[in-house]
Design a protein around this nucleic acid. Structure first.
Lengths: 195, 195
DNA sequence: ATTGAACTTTACACTGTGTAAAGTTGACGC
DNA sequence: GCGTCAACTTTACACAGTGTAAAGTTCAAT
């Protein structure tokens, strides 16, 4: 079952993802990715028109391999709004480490490339939808803080759960993933729940 | 009083800051900065060894012109810990729009340039100190949430008050500065204060 | 034996940074 | 008026990284 050798395309994407995950200091170049996939630089351009498209494909590749949909489905199964909020915070919080490497590269690329910008905006929109759904579930239960409008609450939750925040706490401040998740859940509840 | 014509150095820095403030799409190049200052590209290199140093100087220049110390001093004058937290959130929150343009450029530069990385880390450290002082004041008053260690509380406040968060809410989500400040104050209180 | 796809090799155009050096300009001292 | 010094311009080039172009290799399938 699926023991076929991976396609060149997949080898490139897996190589790129690997490099971006453990990347230090220097940005990952097309030639680095080629080397990681055991190809010439030109062969990479036979599979992807440019760096932006490669990075965008890498994100989608990760989503497939890591089953984002499945992860998120768990939070949709929640019975109460509060439970849904917790599950969502943890589902997304646990997905951040997975996409973090590629995300960094894509965000950096977004500074110069409109396609990269659009692709990242698109993904962040999906995350915002997850936040909106959690907030809506809270509101339905009458558990949303009364002075919070649903849109504002969604924006707040979305901001709290930013990849950037994860990077600061986890990588710069040295928090464990468990501590990160606990505090984000606590923060989300403190900020959104009615007293 | 101080009606001397500005030095070339200052004209370069002011020009760079202006460009970075209203920058759209494309990154600001050395030649753009030169043009803004009414100089040749080479003249810029007579004043700054490289782009990273120019950006770092621009941040410091802004600090001087905008009197960071004065702004922060207000929060130090607070009598209660709670007041200090509010004043700090607002002082820093109101400074973010000022440095935001240069900050973006410096952070982007940090991806490739160790000096830029160090300069930005240094500034963020200063902000963290402001957060730590506010948290310490709360703790002194016994108003810090009992399940929060001072370090964790500082990290949380620091993350909440990230430039990135401001960008998301203010620029992407279209919040007003007043709404941003109100919600950040509310968030900080919800997250840090004892019930 | 031929073909075609996947790949390599070589080479080059382009952008932006940074270096190098010779030439211009104008204020100031004498 | 003359030199000179600093601030600047102009021209030119090295370098990295992306992306394009095209000719050559390899090998499996037909």
């Amino acid at each position: 079952m699926s023991s076929d050798p991976p396609t060149t395309r997949d080898r490139i994407l897996d190589g790129a993802i690997g490099l971006l995950e453990h990347k230090g200091e220097k940005p990952v170049r097309m030639s680095d990715i080629a080397k990681a996939a055991g190809l010439s630089r030109q062969a990479v351009y036979l599979n992807f028109p440019n760096r932006a498209d490669l990075l965008i494909a890498a994100v989608r590749h990760l989503d497939d391999k890591q089953n984002v949909d499945g992860r998120v489905a768990a939070s949709r199964a929640a019975t109460s709004g509060e439970e849904r909020l917790s599950l969502w915070v943890r589902a997304w919080g646990d997905y951040i480490p997975v996409i973090h490497g590629v995300s960094r590269a894509l965000v950096a690329m977004a500074a110069t490339d409109p396609d990269a910008r659009a692709a990242w905006a698109d993904r962040m929109d999906a995350v915002r939808h997850g936040c909106a759904a959690a907030v809506a579930a809270l509101a339905r239960d009458g558990r949303l803080a009364p002075d919070l409008d649903e849109t504002v609450a969604t924006d707040l939750l979305f901001t709290i759960l930013s990849v950037h925040g994860w990077e600061v706490l986890r990588l710069e401040r040295g928090w464990s993933q468990a501590a990160y998740l606990d505090q984000m859940e606590r923060l989300a509840r403190a900020c959104l729940l009615a007293a």
